[in-house]
Design a protein around this nucleic acid. Structure first.
Length: 480
RNA sequence: CGGGGCGUAGCUCAACUUGGAAGAGCGCCUGGUUUGGGUCCAGGAGGCUGGAGGUUCAAAUCCUCUCGCCCCGACCA
């Protein structure tokens, strides 16, 4: 027996998290602090997410483009709040070609500066609007404390940047993309989220408003999974995004930006995985079904590997991502453990008994051995597809039930603090909108306002901290 | 930036307290054996002990400095 290599969630949640990543071979540490190497299995998951989201971004009328990594200091510093927010966490290039550069170049922490200044050149008439562009890129933020996928010094993301003629159009765009993110999280990642607006203190540097989707992890902490910013005319002023309007006057554009990152993979892990390792929702699994032939002799071997391959071809023919594990130097048990750690949703075992019965034993990753059942070869692709669909639903339902179970309505400050300090989940409560009350909660519980959902924006009540009448009802939680 | 832990084989670590020939398990390579939940046996490859300096007849071990990583906090959209 090989020793257990993954810590139990109940004993050491953060150790468990890094163990799952290591054992599933999702990522590795790099020579530079906070940087991570995304290994093929991890990157294949990212590609699944990326391809799904890319299609949605294009369906909503956006085009992809690419802007450069290096941003001149003078450009980044034009929007005061923006630079104040980002400057401390920027990496700066000071040398090039063996010489000290005349002007330092910032490695982008986000691309508003370079993109907005470019848009300024591209717009002269209202007919040039809207500009709807997305880019897939890497960014660097010198975070003090890093964690694989959740907060790395360099990470991959997409950032959409749009410019519009009117405020209403820009606001529509912000809402549209937040909804795209909600669909991505819930329908693809099987991760239920709460969409809503951020408080002022949590708003993106330079934005007028920040909207986000917030998910609950298995340790009941919150994870911000995606953001959509209404930038108003702040960046238009800073970067000269003006155009001649329908009436002939010069007008400032209204802009937005929105992004999700490789952090989503961290969310996936903490949302669905268990003590045996990674659990992947079928829609993002690089391999949906793995087929393991089981044999006792060389004669058996060729017949069973053949059968496994035929089944594999049939599944692939039905559009499923199937893999036959025909490695001869590993016993079936070793293969089972390996694919479990990697989160493959369905395993098919085909041994002599199954071959004789013309069926395969199927095991769903989230149900384990208890859910074993035999499925006849005839109709296998349909049955497996149904199992995958059921698993996708089951993962979502389990995560949603967990979130609902651990979301509380607490009007009194005492119990409110206890719940948050006990890491017991999301807490909904009235808030007067005053930053001082928000800060007090943070100081006394380390929890923050994660998001103010739509139904919490006009909800008469009393501020949980100061007791004055309130209309806001945010979700408070500790977060990653 | 504060607190804690740690750098020794690909990985996890032992040897350090009390200086005296660098080890184990896993993984890897060869051959055989095995295969319905991590087979077993035999043989083998693999190290400037993170780096620099110091003390000493002798340093993985003691001292100084340095680089880096992990965890907890502060910070973070």
């Amino acid at each position: 027996m090989t020793a257990q290599t993954i810590a139990k969630r109940t004993e050491d949640y953060s150790r468990w998290y890094t163990d799952v990543i290591r054992e599933a071979e999702l990522a590795d540490y790099a020579p530079v602090k906070g940087c991570m190497i995304i290994r093929p299995w991890g990157f294949a998951i990212w590609e699944r997410i990326r391809d799904a989201l890319d299609a949605m971004i294009k369906e909503t009328g956006h085009q992809n483009a690419y802007f450069p990594l290096l941003i001149p200091e003078s450009l980044l510093t034009k929007e005061a709040e923006h630079v104040e927010g980002f400057s401390p966490e920027c990496a700066v290039v000071t040398h090039g070609g063996g010489k000290v550069l005349e002007e330092p170049l910032y490695i982008r922490p986000t691309s508003e500066a370079i993109i907005c200044s470019t848009y300024a050149k591209w717009m002269s008439s209202w007919r040039d609007l809207p500009i709807l562009i997305n880019q897939w890129a890497n960014v660097v933020r010198w975070e003090m404390r890093t964690r694989l996928f959740l907060r790395t010094t360099e990470f991959l993301w997409q950032e959409g940047h749009t410019a519009h003629e009117t405020e209403a159009e820009a606001r529509e765009e912000v809402a549209r993309m937040l909804e795209v993110y909600r669909r991505l999280a819930e329908d693809v990642l099987a991760m239920p989220v709460v969409p809503g607006i951020k408080s002022r203190s949590e708003t993106f540097a330079g934005a007028v408003e920040t909207y986000a989707i917030e998910a609950m992890m298995q340790d009941r902490r919150a994870l911000q999974a995606g953001t959509s910013h209404f930038l108003g005319q702040n960046f238009a002023k800073a970067y000269g995004m003006q155009f001649q309007g329908r009436g002939g006057a010069l007008e400032l554009a209204w802009s937005t930006s929105w992004g999700v990152s490789t952090r989503l993979i961290g969310g996936l892990i903490m949302c669905h995985s268990d003590d045996a390792g990674l659990v992947l929702p079928p829609s993002v699994a690089p391999v949906e079904v793995v087929i393991v032939p089981i044999y006792h002799s060389d004669d058996d071997r060729s017949a069973l590997v053949d059968a496994a391959r035929k089944v594999g071809e049939a599944l692939k023919g039905a559009g499923l991502r199937a893999k036959v594990d025909d490695r001869d130097h590993l016993k079936p048990g070793a293969k089972f453990f390996e694919w479990e750690k990697k989160g493959v949703p369905v395993r098919l075992e085909i041994g002599p008994r199954d071959l004789a019965a013309k069926s395969a034993v199927a095991v769903r990753r989230d149900l384990g051995k208890a859910g074993k059942r035999a499925i006849p070869f005839d109709g296998l692709p349909g049955e497996v597809a149904a199992m995958l669909a059921a698993m996708q639903q089951a993962l979502f339902a389990a995560a949603r039930d967990r979130r609902e179970k651990y979301t509380f309505d607490v009007p009194e400050y005492g119990p409110f603090k206890d719940l948050l300090n006990g890491d017991l989940g999301f807490v909904r409560a009235g808030w007067c909108g005053n930053a001082a009350c928000e800060a007090k909660v943070k100081e006394e519980t380390t929890a923050t306002i994660r998001v103010i959902p739509a139904d919490g924006r006009n909800a008469p009540g009393k501020c949980v901290v100061c007791g004055t009448p309130s209309t806001l009802r945010p979700i408070f939680a500790r977060s990653y």
